[in-house]
Design a protein around this nucleic acid. Structure first.
Lengths: 352, 352
DNA sequence: CTGAAAGCGCTTACAG
DNA sequence: CTGAAAGCGCTTACAG
């Protein structure tokens, strides 16, 4: 169990440690035959570099670029990821990790490629990104691939890339959880309304997955014969929300619960509060501040969380382990689905 | 922002680095005047040792002793903590952390002091313990104090000790969460039964706190006039459980939900399964395997978790940070209360 | 009581 | 193409 050192390899191979190092780091200038011999012995002895020594010597800081949508009051969800990244960097304390953030507006699709170019110029050692815009993200990933820069996806997954890993929510399962909660609390004779608020281009894929899980739950359990209606709202403006909601609730008075598929549950909560519809069971996603305040008031009954803080922290950790120890992570990692109720919202899972 | 080195202090103080080191580590053999000067300069320059260099040189592994109840099939809760400890140690990878486990039987109170003596002889650098037996634990802590060995409590907190930290559940809040879940799903005309299964001496304090939170919830929300009954069961044997349960459910047919205050919810679940009482809402604590299997069958409706794996991991981290960097943690740290439903039990929060 | 030196495992010029 | 040496910041004997 004793640590194998570069020196041990050198001795066994009959070369100097400098040569071993050159081989191990592909710094060239080594005779092919020596190269092979050293590599063979290193593998045989199961050499693992001592990252403490590496860190001490190299003093080389790992540069990470983080590409995320810009978070704001109305879209506070994206404010959470930088917290997680900060936390992870702090955890990695004694090692040098430099993070540079690149934020783009979800409303301006053409800003995205500008940011990706800035990242390329930044010459990062690794990238963490939320690839909300599929096509542009795909291009960017190709560019990173060609430069051998590893990248980790957060929140959204894109096929046909060589991402190191994806960290996100199991959106389908999150939908099933929402369904289970409503099913448990809502009288079985009552109906359900699904509200999709998609003002921007953001993440409709995740919303769809959630809704599919939600519907599957009821298809599976089969016993209930609830009506399930869907309402799409394009704007979060109060007049439009009010108009749409008034109309559907009047025409379907048997609706007893509302699920909001995205993070903007607070918009519907505000409506219900205004209408004094405290009897309505409201369930939504994401623990943003606005949502939490309605949860605490009792207007939102449950929030389903996906732990964005932890996701972001994991992404940093994964990238770091890969950069320092060439540790290959599982390609997909789902964060557990979190159920938040008024009574357990107090101790936010900010950990640390 | 540049790192202050021991060398910088030495230069400024006009002494050698060896002397600085002696002062910093209280290894004596230093003139008082030198000592003061060095200490002053170190503070002034905000010296923080480079733990990477320390780790590289010292090769000194930190010895941690872990004192926990012995986990078993029937008391699987305590099997979870070692997992968390293993995880944390793995995270601390490049640094040397040696863990030695000391398990005691909850049924044999006199085994506890034997184990504590073994720990003293082990000469640990730090201790993590679940101080289930108050009095004996108190004695042990005094002994650790006198030797200057830091210790962290898991699960149970004891006053009047100099513990470095306590990591645990907010039991009161966990009780409120259980209440909120039952209140949400149970018709407001129905009554509730609280079952306490306390075969051993274990942790009645936490159970009491949970029950207090549970009752306070209903007192606070005030609107409902549910009857709330309590049943104490001393054994987990099927005959006794059956007898007690039959009797109370017959005399109180309006009971529609059962809360089990401890980790042995599976005992009541087994009873309900046998009686085919699938209408009964059953809520309990702790994600042990047996509980989880009844959750998945739909017999247990919700489990309230306290993340024992994460708790144990945190304890290791806290102790390590204290030992290596003299980082003083907050004295109490509550892990968030976790709500687990059939639909989010699949992705266990084992994290990695 | 104090200083100078060796060494932890690795990387990085530099000399050959 | 290869080896010897210096040094990252700290700790640990050892000599004075």
């Amino acid at each position: 169990m004793k640590q194998v050192r570069i020196k041990d390899i050198a001795r066994k191979a009959g070369v100097s440690i400098g040569t071993v190092d050159r081989v191990l780091h592909n710094r060239g200038e080594v005779a092919e035959s020596t190269r092979k011999k050293v590599l063979h012995i290193a593998r045989e002895m199961k050499y693992r570099p001592n990252i403490v020594a590496q860190a001490l010597k190299a003093k080389k800081s790992h540069r990470l670029a983080v590409l995320l949508p810009h978070g704001s009051g109305d879209n506070a969800f994206w404010l959470l990821h930088p917290q997680g990244i900060g936390k992870a960097v702090k955890e990695l304390q004694p090692f040098q990790v430099d993070v540079r953030y690149f934020f783009y507006e979800l409303t301006r699709e053409n800003e995205f490629p500008v940011k990706t170019q800035e990242i390329i110029q930044f010459h990062p050692d690794g990238v963490i990104l939320a690839p909300v815009f599929k096509k542009e993200s795909g291009k960017f990933c190709k560019e990173l691939d060609s430069r051998g820069i590893p990248y980790v996806f957060i929140d959204t997954y894109i096929d046909e890339t060589h991402c190191l890993a994806f960290i996100g929510e199991d959106a389908y399962q999150a939908g099933r959880v929402a369904a289970g909660l409503i099913d448990y609390g809502l009288n079985s004779s009552r109906d359900i309304l699904i509200v999709n608020i998609a003002r921007n281009l953001e993440d409709t894929e995740n919303l769809n997955l959630r809704n599919r899980g939600f519907l599957h739950y009821f298809a599976d359990t089969g016993t209930s014969h609830r009506g399930i209606y869907t309402l799409d709202i394009a704007s979060t403006g109060l007049p439009e929300v009010e108009k749409s909601m008034n109309s559907i609730l009047e025409s379907h008075p048997n609706i007893g619960a509302i699920l909001v598929s995205g993070a903007k549950t607070h918009v519907i909560a505000r409506y219900l509060e205004m209408k004094e519809r405290r009897d309505m069971i409201l369930v939504g996603y994401e623990l943003t501040e606005k949502n939490l305040s309605f949860l605490k008031k009792g207007i939102i009954r449950f929030l389903i969380g996906q732990k964005p803080v932890e996701q972001a922290a994991r992404a940093v950790k994964i990238l770091f382990d890969y950069l320092t120890m060439h540790q290959i992570p599982p390609r997909q990692e789902y964060q557990p689905v979190e159920i938040i109720h008024k009574e357990n919202a107090g101790t936010p899972n900010t950990g640390e």
